[in-house]
Amino acid sequence: MEYIDLHAHMVSRTTDDYREMAMSGCVAVTEPAFWAGYDRPGVDAFIDYFNRLTDFEPKRAATYGIAHFTWMCLNPKEAENRELTRQVLEVIPRYLELPTVLGIGEIGLNRVTKNELAGFKDHVDLAMEYEQLIHIHTPHLEDKWKGTKVIVETLAADSRIEPHRVMVDHAEEHSVDMILDNGFWTGLTLYPVTKVSPARAVDVIESRGPERICVAAACDWGESRPLAVPEFIMEMRRRGHPDSLIRRVVYENPIEFLGQSPKFRLPDRERSAVAV
């Protein structure tokens, strides 16, 4: 089954991963800017990273017939440094003009500090100024509920925000309702340990329905599964769900959200030269 992985940190993955994703049905990925596993030394490191996201990765993905899109930001793990945040915010607009940049993300919170929230609001202002879609990272583990609540309340209080243009990602059972009830899109990221398993993601779809919910691997430099979406597809079938419902979650829903950007286009299968 064809699918779109809406959240995949492919800079951390091998070309073999692209190949296996293509062979398992992946037609497009979107890659939010994120933390490298260590704090970057300065704005030049971000420029190098953004160049890779907008140049090298789309070419690498295209080799296997996968469309690659990206999102720009300074991630919340580095937002404690307000001066660095200001410097990175200054360079982001030049990237927003590029053909594969869909919006601002993944912004959000990490430990839910005052500076993180200030950086989050700065990015929201940038998104509003340049009329961009927003992709949001919610905190991990014990900080999930608290951070999601602060993010949702902050956005709900901002009259400029159109919830249908915002993806609040990394939802789990205790955060998904507050996201959906406020009109936002949400994502279930399929991780082996720290987020949602494919089985629990299916539980969420069964109990809440498929409206405004996507799933993604969020594969990165940590223990993660680039083929997590096919695992979700297999689990949905194991539970007795029809392919029409599965396709809605893994293909049609991402298109509905991402298609709000005029830049989002799927590969033309009649013309693409695929090296698989």
């Binding site: 793990k77 404690e80 990490n110 430990r111 839910v112 500090t113 005052k114 500076n115 993180e116 929230l117 905190p139 991990h140 583990l141 014990e142 900080d143 999930k144 509920w145 608290k146 609540k149 602060v150 789990e172 059972e173 205790h174």
Partner: peptide, 21 residues
């Protein structure tokens, strides 16, 4: 999930640790 969660809403004054436990 709520047993494992921080139930507060107050912001931290500054970053205490990079990763959750």
């Amino acid at each position: 999930q709520m047993i494992f969660s921080d139930p507060r809403s107050e912001l931290l004054e500054e970053l205490d640790t990079q990763s959750a436990k």
